[in-house]
Amino acid sequence: MTPATTTERHHRITVADGVALHAAVTGSGPAIVLLHGFPQTHLMWRHVAADLADDHTVIRPDLRGYGASDKPVDTDGTTYAKRAMAADVVALAAALGHDRFALAGHDRGALVAFRAGLDHPDRITHLAALDVLPTLDMWDVMHGVTAAVGFHLYLMAQPPGLPERMIAADPDAFFGHFLDTWTVDPGAIPADVRAAYLRACREAVPSIVADYRASAGIDVEHDRADLAAGNRLTMPVAVLQQDWGAALGFDAAALWSAWAPDLAHTTVSAGHFMAEEAPTEVADALRALLRR
């Protein structure tokens, strides 16, 4: 696993409630924070970070509950709310000297970025979301047999106990399923990186489940409250995603436009792990966003 650049620095910073995040930092200049998705860590951004670090400070944390970051026990269903995870990111950036920054997230990280944009609009200059829908819209479009593609969403939404036991029985098979089936280019995730992802997931089953469970609970409540209040993403937003709409019967751009008036929506041919399968395309899209 080659670092993004030879100047990569690693930090461990306490952000809230005693929770410490691990973050890799490269480059210098205006800050952009890159948030990983499931079932990955900050490593997923290694290629994009190498590009952006030419003229930006690139901050790649492991989200709470993932990778080398702390994995607090969820006692009340709010520990892994995207609101808490977004506050982590804002505090991390501030601790590194960046009160305002651009923010991009993939998958779970995109949901954290979305919440950060709504909760902290004064801190987020630009926002990018890769291959995800806002939580409310995600649940609304999942119906019928096509919802089978999201079986893990329903499994991990169940009350504490059963999902954790089922996944822990064979975590490599569970997490490896997604690494294998969501990838168009199998070579995009080399063996050493795949092994690192699986090792990190084996060590984080309860916190990963808690993250997903929050998206069927407290995250829905927060998003519904914002929708009712008319809160929207006020910064320039870029969304890159596969053509889910064609498969599941919805207009992804329209769904995102309802939340983001200043939106650039792009459908890509890469698989779900697009930052690893098509890093140049992703980096170019982020640079285009930062120029808006």
Rank of each mutant, 00 (worst) to 15 (best):
Val58Asn: 11
Ile59Trp: 14
Ile59Pro: 01
Arg60Thr: 02
Asp62Glu: 12
Leu63Arg: 07
Arg64Cys: 10
Gly65Asp: 07
Tyr66Lys: 11
Gly67Trp: 01
Gly67Asn: 08
Asp70His: 05
Lys71Phe: 01
Pro72Gln: 14
Pro72Glu: 12
Pro72Asn: 15
Val73Pro: 11
Val73Gly: 09
Asp74Leu: 09
Asp74Tyr: 06
Asp76Val: 10
Asp76Tyr: 13
Gly77Arg: 08
Gly77Thr: 09
Thr78His: 07
Thr79Glu: 15
Thr79Met: 15
Tyr80Trp: 13
Tyr80Pro: 04
Tyr80Thr: 07
Ala81Asp: 08
Ala81Thr: 14
Lys82Arg: 07
Lys82Leu: 01
Arg83Ala: 15
Ala84Thr: 14
Met85Pro: 09
Ala86Pro: 06
Ala87Cys: 09
Val89Cys: 04
Val89Ser: 00
Val89Ala: 06
Ala91Pro: 05
Ala91Tyr: 00
Leu92Arg: 03
Ala93Ser: 11
Ala94Thr: 02
Ala94Glu: 08
Leu96Phe: 04
His98Pro: 11
Asp99Val: 04
Asp99Gly: 13
Asp99Tyr: 00
Arg100His: 05
Ala102Ile: 01
Ala102Val: 02
Leu103Trp: 02
Leu103Gln: 07
His106Trp: 01
His106Pro: 08
Asp107Trp: 12
Arg108Lys: 10
Gly109Lys: 05
Leu111Tyr: 02
Leu111His: 09
Val112Ile: 12
Ala113Pro: 04
Ala113Asp: 08
Ala113Val: 11
Ala113Thr: 06
Arg115Ser: 15
Arg115Ala: 14
Asp119Gln: 11
Asp119Pro: 03
Pro121His: 11
Pro121Met: 13
Pro121Glu: 14
Ile124Asn: 12
Thr125Glu: 15
His126Val: 08
His126Glu: 11
Asp131Cys: 10
Asp131Pro: 02
Asp131Thr: 05
Pro134Met: 05
Thr135Phe: 12
Thr135Leu: 09
Thr135Lys: 04
Leu136Ser: 12
Asp137Tyr: 02
Met138Tyr: 07
Trp139Lys: 06
Asp140Thr: 15
Val141Glu: 08
His143Glu: 11
Val145Lys: 10
Val145Asn: 13
Thr146Gly: 14
Ala147Gly: 15
Ala148Tyr: 08
Ala148Asn: 00
Ala148Met: 12
Val149Glu: 09
Val149His: 12
Phe151Asn: 14
Phe151Cys: 09
Phe151Leu: 02
His152Arg: 07
Met156Ile: 00
Gln158Ile: 03
Gln158Ala: 02
Pro159Lys: 04
Pro159Ser: 10
Pro159Glu: 10
Pro160Ser: 01
Glu164Asp: 05
Ile167Asp: 00
Ile167Phe: 03
Ala168Thr: 04
Asp170Gly: 00
Asp172Pro: 01
Asp172Met: 02
Ala173Asp: 04
Phe174Leu: 06
Phe174Arg: 05
